[in-house]
């Protein structure tokens, strides 16, 4: 029996789809059987980020409505063994699927795969409720700005009230130089207010855009720093202790972590 994860944020455009593609690909590179589920019905993107858009025949809604078998809708990624995508429907609405149906679907996938990773749409309405319905663990992603962290706080509240005990946090698009000169909140600032566990810090990296242009996740690119950060996240999700890449990026973190532990 595998594990299901949902990647969510509240605010749009902060890197959910990028993180889903890269963490999934990284886990597959670690010999795990992975399926990525695009729950952003009506605004599907994960297929394009993965470079699999030309191979879609059936989608998630077709499966739920019984037009095809689950197996028929899964696209096998030929670049890395074990990686699969279940695409979203592009011409339907979020309401085409219910949380109950999603839970069912994710449950079936967990029997087959080690990791089921669900890419959540922006917002906190039905699309969000669908995406989190079948998830065992939730990862909240934010960028280091006031509105994104504020929305993350709201989503963490919703997750906690729907039974997720300890959501994990990814801070994306950190610019170490801006942090150094005091023009960006640092990781410690964000952890202080959100008070959840950090699973990764991903730097701003042009390689993300290049990789999205090409439809090749950045984790396939050995020299991308964001790719490295996503590989580290995959290892941490597997339970490995991986030091955070650049200590300057997480300055003050250790002291604060100790403080959190002391408070508990």
């Amino acid at each position: 029996m595998g594990e299901s994860l949902v990647i969510t944020s509240g605010k749009g455009g902060v890197g959910k789809t990028t993180a889903t593609a890269n963490i999934g690909a990284a886990l597959a590179m670690m010999n795990q059987k992975v399926v990525l589920v695009d729950a952003d019905i009506g605004l599907r993107n994960l297929d394009v980020v993965m470079g699999l858009e030309n191979r879609i025949v059936y989608d998630l809604v077709d499966v739920v409505e019984g037009f095809c078998k689950l197996k028929q809708a899964l696209i096998k990624d030929k670049r890395v063994e074990g990686l699969h995508l279940l695409p979203a429907a592009q011409t339907r609405e979020k309401t085409a699927v219910t949380p109950e149906q999603m839970k069912n679907l994710v449950g079936q996938l967990k029997e087959e795969f080690d990791y089921v990773i669900v890419d959540c749409p922006a917002g906190i309405e039905q699309g969000f409720r669908n995406a989190v319905a079948g998830a065992d663990r939730a990862i909240v992603i934010t960028t280091p700005d006031v509105s994104s962290v504020r929305d993350a706080d709201r989503v963490i509240g919703l997750l906690e009230s729907s039974g997720f005990e300890r959501p994990l946090l990814i801070v994306n698009r950190i610019k170490p130089k801006m942090v150094d000169r005091g023009d960006m909140m640092d990781i410690g600032d964000i952890l202080d207010v959100l008070a959840i566990d950090l699973v990764g810090v991903v730097p701003e990296d042009e390689a993300i855009l290049v990789s999205t242009n090409r439809g090749e996740p950045a984790v396939f690119n050995g020299s991308s720093r964001a790719g490295q950060a996503f590989r580290n996240i995959a290892r941490r999700l597997r339970g490995e202790e991986v030091p955070f890449m650049n200590l300057a990026e997480v300055q003050g973190l250790w002291g604060r972590l100790r403080k959190f532990v002391g408070l508990e």
């Binding site: 700005d145 006031v146 942090v179 005091g182 023009d183 960006m184 207010v193």
Partner: peptide
Amino acid sequence: SKSGDVARERLRVVLMQDRISL
């Protein structure tokens, strides 16, 4: 003050208000 500090302070206040009004 540095804009990072301003952001942190604004965030702290806005979250207090969000949480209480929720």
